Amino acid sequence: MNCMKVFLFVLMATIFEAVGDAVIRIAIAAPRPHMRIGFYLLGTVLLALYGTSLNLAPVEFATVTGLYIATLFVVFQITNYVLLHTAPTLPVMVGGSLIVAGGLTVYLWK
């Protein structure tokens, strides 16, 4: 499978996971019961899509674990900033750069 297809697959899975998690966090803080239920349902669907996409992957997950972890860190930070208005701190950025470097090393080192 070519690298771009693998990356796009991993990116979609991490988006489902990160946004699903953020929506669940929004549901917990929702002020009204009907809003809470709606956010929980949306978060549940997104997390189900994440789990389904990983289990139906056309690639062995062990081979893309490094890429997945690196992508997951980046997508979680973007999601936290866009949906929850939380900017990453300097320690998160420094540690995250190590996560990304390590993830890419695991994925690219043949």
Rank of each mutant, 00 (worst) to 15 (best):
R36L: 09
L83A: 10
L56H: 11
N55C: 08
V59C: 07
G96P: 10
V74Q: 02
P91C: 07
L46M: 04
G38E: 08
T63W: 02
D21E: 12
Q77I: 05
A57S: 15
V75I: 15
V23M: 03
V75E: 03
P88R: 03
T65Y: 14
I69H: 07
P91F: 07
G43N: 02
V64G: 01
T79Q: 04
I78W: 01
A57L: 10
L67G: 05
Y68K: 09
G96S: 11
T71G: 05
G66K: 00
N80W: 05
P33Q: 11
F73R: 01
I69S: 07
V94Q: 07
L90T: 13
Y40K: 07
L83V: 06
P33N: 07
A29N: 12
E60Q: 13
T79N: 04
R32I: 02
L46P: 00
T52V: 10
I37S: 10
L46W: 00
G95I: 06
L84P: 08
P31F: 07
H34L: 13
S53F: 09
F61R: 11
L56D: 01
A87E: 05
T44P: 01
S97Y: 05
Y81P: 01
N80Y: 09
V64W: 03
P33G: 01
I37G: 01
I28N: 08
T65I: 15
M35L: 13
R36N: 10
T71R: 02
M35I: 07
L84T: 10
N80T: 03
F76D: 10
L54V: 15
P58E: 09
F73P: 01
P58G: 14
H34N: 12
V82D: 06
E60M: 10
I69V: 15
F39D: 01
D21N: 15
G38W: 07
G38I: 06
F73H: 03
N55F: 06
T71F: 01
M35N: 09
P91G: 08
T86S: 13
V23A: 01
V75P: 00
N80P: 04
V59K: 05
P91E: 08
P33Y: 08
V82G: 04
A48T: 15
T71C: 14
L54R: 13
L47V: 13
L41F: 13
